[in-house]
Structures are given as C-alpha cells and as structure tokens.
Simulated scan of single mutants.
Amino acid sequence: MKKVNGDLLTPISIFQRLQGRHKFLLESSTKYEGNGRYSFIGVNPRKTYRGQDEYLQDISHLTNKSYQYDGELISLLKQVMPRVSSHTEFPLTGGGIGYINALPKSLPAMQFHVYDTLFIFDHLTDEIAVFHTNIEAEQVEPNIDALIEQLFAGHTPIETDYLLHSLEKSATNRYDAKFSGDAFSLYRKLRIQHAAAYMYYIEFDECTVIGTSPTSSIQIRDGELSTTNTEASIERFCEENSIHQAEQIQHGKLLSTFHAMDVVKELQPNEGLIGYIGFNGQVDFATPHSMITITGDIAQLYTATNDGEVPFHTLIKGGL
C-alpha cells in the first residue's frame, strides 16, 4: 500500500484518468457523513465470477482460461472467492464487486469482478491509498508508483454527453428507455439528482450498472453484522442455526462460526443485492433503489418507490 496527498483530485477525476476495462466506482454522497468517508475505484479485474441457474463460471483475465462449477451459486462463490486476512483502516482493500439477483432476468443472476488493486479516496484526509493484494502466484505485482503517476500526470477526458428518451413502463417499478452516449455522464447526473448513502457505477461485459440506494441491506464489518432484513427473516435464520438471541444478529457481534457469505445466503432480500465482498471477509450490500442497467442502446430503469410519479424524469432530458 502507498498513500499520497490527493487534495487536487476527486473520485470522479480518478475514475476518469484510469485506463482499462471493467471500471467501477463505489461512493457515498457527502450528505451522509456516517457512510461517506471512503470512495473505492478499480479497473482491470483479475477474475470474473458469473453465475446463472446452478452454474458458476470462473474467468481468469490473466490467463484467459475459464472454469465452470456446478451447485448453489452463493455457496460456490464462497468457495472460490480469494480470502486474505488483513487488518487495515479500510473496510475494503480488494475483493469482488458485483450483484446477486438484482438485475433483469435477461442478464446473469450473479456476477462479480475481482479486483486485486484498489484506489481508495479518503474524504476526511484527502489522501489516496493505492492497495494491492497478490491473489495469484504467477502474477507480477503492479508498479504502484506508475499507477499514482497515471493519476497526477494524466488528463481528465473531454466531457461527453448522453441521451435518454422514450420512457415506457415495462413492469412494476421498471421502465425502458432509448440510450446513447456516455454511461458515466449519466451516472454523474444520477449521483446529483438521486444522491444517497450508497452510489455505484460498475461495467460488465453485458451491461453497465449505475444506481443509488439510501441504506445498506447487509453489512459485516470487523465481525459486526448490521441488516435491514425483517425480524421474521432474522428469527428464521437464528432458528435454523440454533442461535437464541436474534437481536444480537440484527445489529451486533456475529458468531465466529459463520462465514459472511453464509449470512448473505440466508438473509438476501427478494430485491437482490449489489455491493462488495472483501478479501478480508467483510461485506457491504445495498438493495437496488434507483438503478439503471444499460445494454447496448436500451436502458432499463428501476425504482423501489411506488408513489405514482415517473422516476428519473430529470434524467430523461439528457445532458449534464
């Protein structure tokens, strides 16, 4: 890990200056001080795990080899996700960024890019930490100084625009629209119009996913579990695992016998999850609230609200 003063940059400018594929940005609006200290940025993942039905595909971007495993998807993900013990000030220093059962059924049911190098922006100190975790024996470690040089010597790309129009309702709380232009420009507009404690931009092969959510649904940090799941779900989880104090599971110390992914499997909500699984065993997932998936020239817009108002109307006009 290496830290540098980053007061001349922002998470947006860092994202724009990084070169490569499958970029992501996880951040929080500064309006939500409890969640917004760190922003996480990454590019060029080492692996991708893609799951559908009972088949999990393990794709190595280093060797261009692919493997397939059969079974329940979350259980398989628990087995294949690299686990590296680390004790740092950061909740995430590398791991899987993606979703579980959160996107339209035409897309994979589960997908995670695995990043071994992260750029972490600390909004409290204006420092940038570049953190690398070696998860493959044959891998050559990156030149962290060269990565930092890319941030400060690089130029922010010329701003581009987008068009989003012809909004039509396709299902309950889902809308279809025509899209063209730059997806990141749309995200920049979304993060202003729908600012929230959880905001994300993730590039997959099939689509780009952007969105915001007001709260975390399942978070495990330093052995502490917080969840917004219903009491009935928590009670059932405790009963099935012979745990006698459900209130301790809702917000308290997680028993050491439980793996984070076991908890995610049991408490995942029907709306799905989007967020991260850290190499260090920590997880943080939100449920989709205001989310857009862009596939080719089609954007699908999802809102968790059902107040009769057409969502995202401020985005339909296009432009920054």
Rank of each mutant, 00 (worst) to 15 (best):
E206N: 12
T295E: 11
Q79T: 14
T10K: 07
T228K: 13
G51V: 06
H61I: 02
H123R: 12
T305F: 05
T208C: 11
I100R: 00
C207N: 02
S290V: 10
T293I: 10
S106M: 14
H113S: 12
E27S: 07
V80S: 05
E72Q: 15
G252P: 07
A171N: 01
A260D: 04
K78H: 13
K265N: 14
E136T: 00
L190N: 02
H61S: 07
N44D: 13
L273A: 11
D182R: 03
H61P: 00
M291V: 09
C207H: 05
L103V: 15
I292R: 01
G308Q: 06
I144S: 04
A232Q: 12
N64P: 04
L164E: 02
P104N: 09
L18A: 02
P108F: 07
T287R: 15
S29N: 04
T287P: 00
V80T: 05
K169P: 03
V43I: 11
D262G: 07
T295F: 03
S13E: 13
H155Q: 15
G95A: 06
E127R: 01
S256C: 05
H87Q: 13
N5Q: 12
H251R: 12
A286V: 07
L92K: 06
Q16E: 15
I292E: 03
G319Y: 02
V283W: 05
K265S: 15
H155Y: 12
Q245M: 11
F312Q: 01
I294Q: 03
I243Y: 13
S213F: 01
H61C: 08
I128S: 06
T160R: 13
I74Q: 03
G94K: 00
T257S: 14
L118H: 02
H259P: 04
H289V: 12
A109D: 10
Y201Q: 01
S170N: 09
Q19C: 07
A286C: 11
K265V: 06
L26F: 10
S216T: 12
G71H: 06
I218R: 01
H132R: 08
D145R: 09
F258Q: 03
F152R: 11
H251E: 09
A299F: 01
Q150Y: 02
Q250P: 03
Q268G: 03
H132S: 07
Y162F: 15
T160F: 04
A177N: 06
R83I: 09
N241S: 08
S85W: 08
T133K: 09
T48D: 08
Y162G: 06
S226W: 08
Q139H: 12
M110G: 00
V43P: 00
P11R: 09
G42K: 04
Y302I: 08
T30W: 05
F237C: 05
D70K: 14
H87D: 10
I243K: 04
K178N: 11
E235C: 07
L225F: 00
L190M: 12
L25R: 05
